[in-house]
Design a protein around this nucleic acid. Sequence first.
DNA 1: TGTACATCAGTGAACGCGCGTTCACTGATGTAC
DNA 2: TGTACATCAGTGAACGCGCGTTCACTGATGTAC
Lengths: 206, 206
Amino acid sequence: MMITIIIVKGTEASMRITKEKAAENRARVVAAADRLFREKGFDGVGVAELMGEAGLTHGGFYNHFASKDDLEAAACEAIFDRAVAKIEQVAATLEGEKRRLAFDDYRRRYVSKPARDATAANCPMVAFAGDVSRQSDALRETYARGLRAYLDAFARAGSQGQGGAQVRREALRRFSELVGALTLARSVAGADPDLSDEILAAASVD
Amino acid sequence: MMITIIIVKGTEASMRITKEKAAENRARVVAAADRLFREKGFDGVGVAELMGEAGLTHGGFYNHFASKDDLEAAACEAIFDRAVAKIEQVAATLEGEKRRLAFDDYRRRYVSKPARDATAANCPMVAFAGDVSRQSDALRETYARGLRAYLDAFARAGSQGQGGAQVRREALRRFSELVGALTLARSVAGADPDLSDEILAAASVD
DNA sequence: TGTACATCAGTGAACGCGCGTTCACTGATGTAC
DNA sequence: TGTACATCAGTGAACGCGCGTTCACTGATGTAC
């Protein structure tokens, strides 16, 4: 009796791909970067993991991006755009009382436990603040532009039309508080959950 | 004419060393870690750089430490001890008004430009908060213990003897604000110095 | 519309580099007698 | 106190691994005729 085993080589098709399909693949890589960079930091995610997450192999990365730095800057910009759009939505809420409610709601969500635990949907300021100083110049520029745009919108969202220096200072302090609370809460979430919750709770009152 | 060049092999003496000298060497490594980890983060400094900073070669590292993780935890603990001692000094300032002044002074220094730029003397909460979640369990434990001790002392330093829940919440918010402001200010110090200064200024009033 | 060929998004092996860690070796220190 | 030997803090080469990046190759797509 004879048993014949035929191994069919993967072949997986390394054929050329539709332009649309290629664009879709690129978008999937950016989407993976979007999630993973916020979750693990720029240096915590490799090119291979990124490509794997998008269902591709690492070799093709450079068909879409000049370097990992390049993708980092692209992802960072996209993430900031979305974050800015979100807070601008609050700033665009016209009526005084309604806007105040929307703003308070926004702030409460920001320092909530779900926000702390959803690291993949992390706020870019918190996700990247500690790392940017070690990244490329281009990324630092992108980050700084993003933060400025965000803070402007945040200050508008928190004001009631009046735009004095005092109001702006208050907004900056408020935002610093949110960032600090989320950062600290996350840093001890595993080892001292009670302290983590307490920090969040303190920042969400008022 | 003949020129003879004699190359004296470094020899640098790989002789055994006095116990005291060895302890001193170890201390120098810890001192380097103390400075460099705060400046560049745990992953931004290698064993070779650490040893070089202490005037040694990398091979001997494991005569003093079980692993890089081990040194990280040791350095982290030492850094926290010093930070906690510093804020406890403020908490130990007895008289009401004097203590308030000391506390306000402490806070103002914390978000000052010198503090922002002196990354090697960085506050451990700001230096490590973003990184701890990616480090070893032991380090996370050390960090959490340090943060709790620090916050307790900070709350005592900021209160006037009364110790209600409201006072504690207020202290946590205050500290979150300081950490957020310093973190954000530092993240854009290079690319947008005006914004950086503005964030610090906002957090230092009152 | 059909044919011939260049293009280029994929694949997966390989390169170079830096890192944490290990190792064989050295020789003055520290210890046992 | 003097001698003989084990110890152990150093050195510097080497290992193994993961990473960003490069490369030769593939073959359907897209284009030129």
